[in-house]
Design a binder for these strands. Structure first.
Length: 461
DNA sequence: TGTTCATGG
DNA sequence: TATCCATGAACA
């Protein structure tokens, strides 16, 4: 599969984008190396404690006795898999792509062996430590300069490396605090970010023009994920605010996987494991997350979903309804798009790139959306870079995370900068590309003056 | 070098 | 026919 620009404008987007991103790279972001060293020491000590505890356990003794000649490497996933699934003959919760028993976090948790928690905790800390060491390695004179590439990704999105600025820990609270707590603006400045809300969903709508989807986007009182949560968890009281965890479960366990081409059985498993913590194998009363004063499992059982198999079937019916009723036009677009690819051998992005060569059905409907959504951000990034130089801003663009622009802001310029960002993203961009006939929106976050990236809070214009 | 695991969108 | 895209570490 290859993607090539078909217009001068498409080529120019990458050319100008490369220049704008190069200026952000040169600017860089400040790293507090004393803080990094302090946290590294803390992490190493904590990791050692988990490791010592693990090494003194019966589990480890058994593992050690099972390997010939020397001690097992507790960092080796394949040695662990061999011990668990070949020596101890445990049943793997799931297998990897190549058919081996998996030892990822989910699989180890399912085994319910307390010692494995020690290994998992150590591994989590190791990930944080690696991130800090990456910062340290790439810092010169207290600043690091992550690269932003436009030539590495199959969909013509961007990537980042040395260090990767696009996968710094965020969701885990402790990891967020440690990793982002190492990153600062120039003295006297503030870190700031502006991210497009639901840009892929909105850009997808520019392609498929599904009327129900457009209503969801345009009507601020509507809530697609909330509606799906009501349907999935069978909540009749439509006046009641959907429990935020259930809404998240619907969003990340059903809606997005469905958009990317997943199907009901995986959704059912994912919702149970990752989101409502209801073990499929032991579906019973009093388990899963709390809903009001009782557990989600009790609620589902009371609604007739009395086993995991029934839940799978329930999700199957919801999937049918999702594509054949709720988002019927989106579904038709996917079919048309795929048929057209099979007939002509390529598909064209709204931004002037042509994707040709071998693609699966999922690739075919996902690539143009992912690429185009990023091109929206890239156009804004180029425009803001141009304006910042023209108006001689002290505020600088320093990076980008797919749908998120990151800046190092002079507090005196804050108001002008944020108004300019809002105008460029929500007005100038849709004027520049008239195929954007869906309203766009951004959310902004600001850190205190001299505060770290871990200290950001919502910023209202 | 390919696989698996973590992280992010 | 069945989850899209990346980087990076560690191991075999």
């Amino acid at each position: 599969m290859t993607i090539n620009p078909r217009t001068i404008e498409a080529y120019k987007l990458l050319h100008d984008g490369t220049l704008a991103l190069a200026r952000a790279e040169r600017q860089g972001i400040r790293v507090d190396l004393d803080y990094v060293n302090e946290k590294k020491e803390y992490l190493i000590k904590k990791m050692n404690r988990f490791e010592q505890k693990f090494r003194s356990s019966d589990f480890h003794k058994h593992w050690k006795s099972s390997v010939k000649s020397k001690t097992p490497n507790i960092n080796s996933d394949s040695q662990l898999a061999n011990f668990l699934y070949n020596i101890k003959k445990l049943t793997p919760y799931k297998t990897t792509k190549s058919g081996q028993g998996s030892v990822d976090e989910e699989s180890l948790k399912q085994l319910n062996i307390p010692e494995l928690d020690l290994l998992l905790k150590k591994k989590k800390l190791k990930g944080i430590l690696d991130k800090l060491e990456g910062f340290e390695k790439e810092a010169t004179n207290g600043y690091m300069h992550p690269f932003f590439n436009l030539n590495t990704v199959i969909t013509y999105r961007s990537s980042s490396d040395s260090p990767n600025f696009q996968n710094i820990h965020k969701r885990d609270k402790e990891a967020n605090k440690i990793c982002r707590g190492a990153l600062f603006p120039r003295p006297g400045h503030q870190l700031f970010s502006a991210d497009f809300s639901g840009i892929e969903v909105r850009i997808a709508a520019c392609y498929h023009q599904d009327s129900n989807m457009i209503n969801y986007i345009k009507d601020p009182t509507s809530d697609m994920h909330g509606d799906m949560a009501k349907q999935i968890f069978i909540i009749d009281d439509f006046n009641k605010k959907i429990h935020s965890q259930l809404r998240q479960a619907a969003k990340n366990g059903f809606v997005f996987p469905q958009f990317y081409g997943d199907y009901y059985k995986n959704n059912a498993i994912g919702i149970c494991n990752d989101w409502i913590k209801l073990p499929q194998s032991r579906w019973k009363k009093g388990m899963g997350i709390e809903l009001d004063s009782h557990c989600i499992s009790d609620h589902l059982i009371s609604k007739g979903i009395s086993s995991f198999d029934k839940f799978v079937n329930h999700i199957k019916e919801i999937e049918y309804d999702f594509w054949n009723n709720r988002f019927f036009e989106y579904q038709k677009w996917k079919t048309r798009w795929w048929e057209s690819y099979k007939k002509y051998g390529y598909i064209d992005m709204k931004t002037g790139f042509r994707c040709s060569g071998g693609m699966s059905r999922n690739d075919c409907v996902n690539y143009p959306i992912q690429g185009t959504a990023f091109h929206c951000l890239l156009w804004c990034f180029i425009e803001l870079d141009r304006i910042s130089m023209q108006e001689n801003w002290d505020t600088k663009l320093i990076g980008q995370i797919h749908d998120d622009i990151v800046m190092d802001v002079n507090p005196d310029e804050l108001e002008h900068v944020t108004k300019t960002i809002k105008r460029v993203t929500c007005e100038d961009l849709p004027k520049h590309w008239d195929w954007i006939n869906i309203p766009l929106d951004i959310e902004m976050e600001l850190c205190p003056i001299d505060g770290s990236w871990a200290d950001k809070s919502v910023y209202e214009l």
